[in-house]
Design a binder for these strands. Sequence first.
DNA 1: CGGAACGCTGAGATCGCGGTAAGAATCACC
DNA 2: GGTGATTCTTACCGCGATCTCAGCGTTCCG
Lengths: 230, 230
Amino acid sequence: MGGVVRSEPLVLVVDDEATVRQALERALRLEGFAVTTAADGLEALAAVAQRPPAVIVLDVTMPGLDGVSVVRKLRGDGIDVPVCMLSARDEVEDRVAGLQAGADDYLVKPFAIAELTARLEALLRRHGAEGAGPHMAGDIIVDPRRHVATRAGRELALTRREFDLLDVFVRHPGQVLSRDQLLSLVWGYTTDVETNVVDVFVGYLRRKLEIEGEPRILHTVRGVGWALRP
Amino acid sequence: MGGVVRSEPLVLVVDDEATVRQALERALRLEGFAVTTAADGLEALAAVAQRPPAVIVLDVTMPGLDGVSVVRKLRGDGIDVPVCMLSARDEVEDRVAGLQAGADDYLVKPFAIAELTARLEALLRRHGAEGAGPHMAGDIIVDPRRHVATRAGRELALTRREFDLLDVFVRHPGQVLSRDQLLSLVWGYTTDVETNVVDVFVGYLRRKLEIEGEPRILHTVRGVGWALRP
DNA sequence: CGGAACGCTGAGATCGCGGTAAGAATCACC
DNA sequence: GGTGATTCTTACCGCGATCTCAGCGTTCCG
């Protein structure tokens, strides 16, 4: 990946469902994080003790020690690693309990990986690690904080999906991303639908990227996916 | 964020409850302060000795050395860093004791972050530390001290909530703020309600900002939040 | 050369978000 | 305790964003 390689921040993913754990691990690796996993609360605490991560992704509902308890324990021990909690339900009590226990952010399943990485970046940034501002590749700049994207200085009027999609491409310049990868990154990690939404939105993006006759930068790699190449 | 970056004033947050510490640290960082924390009175004194903060946020009730004692000690040592005290109760004795011991301001939990930052800024300002006067963005000026806001010189008749909301936007110009962020910043750090108050007040604000047909400056970013952009 | 797989595009249909109005509840001030 | 201002809730509406689907062109095989 062009440019300076700063050491990848370590993320600890805690979830009792193996499928979720794997999906998140794979996706976060792709997004440039180093990842360790734990299957329950006790494992999580052990992992933190052994090697403190830069940030923790923590499921609420787990057998044994649940997520809220884990956070409470960590905070009680004076460990202030930022925590993003996950919950299958969007019930208010959980949310409140989590945040009050000391979690820093909260996400309701299912979610898109891009959503998660955005939050993790925000948490890291907030925790001093100057976790980068806008992303850029070629003549494209994407600034999630301001939700503004430009090509060669010209501002692109993008909708939410278009914006997220472009952001993913910009953060993986030159790399070919498959339909499935994009689906899980932008749409949601459980999306299994057989559709061509991605194609459609790649089309939308291209249209807006090439409005003034600029050369194509979002290329098709037939049978594999798409890649952003200057 | 465009413009001159003046070095962020350092805030020392002292509270025995880790959750409160976390919440305040997180929120104050977002509001542009540098933050250190301490879990009790002794830690607080040590932190002050090691690196004197520009202002201290101090819980009254703590095990060991309580807040009032901390202030008394500081003042006794001739250290006149401004102090804002927090208390769970609104009992008069505490308030009086705190102020008599040398605290500069007093806040009753729970409170909205905007309330706290307003007070901190007031303290910094009062303490000569050029803690900046009014905030401005585009043709909007917000002066928390006089509680006056203007657009292009025209004074806006804002209620308290409207004022706080506008203030938050002005202090984060260009940045997209989500419904959740605004809820916690303006309404309170414990607010969990699922409601559209924010939408309503954005509406109120716009109405008053555009009374004379001025162009829209408070923009909607669909699916994300709102942003103030000239 | 022909067929099949693949990707692209245009045209709706749907759905949810944000805007707004109106009234209820709450607060503040007298 | 009463009255007006402020804040919050609720409900509904309209529009934009997203998605589906079908048809077409292109590429890559046999």
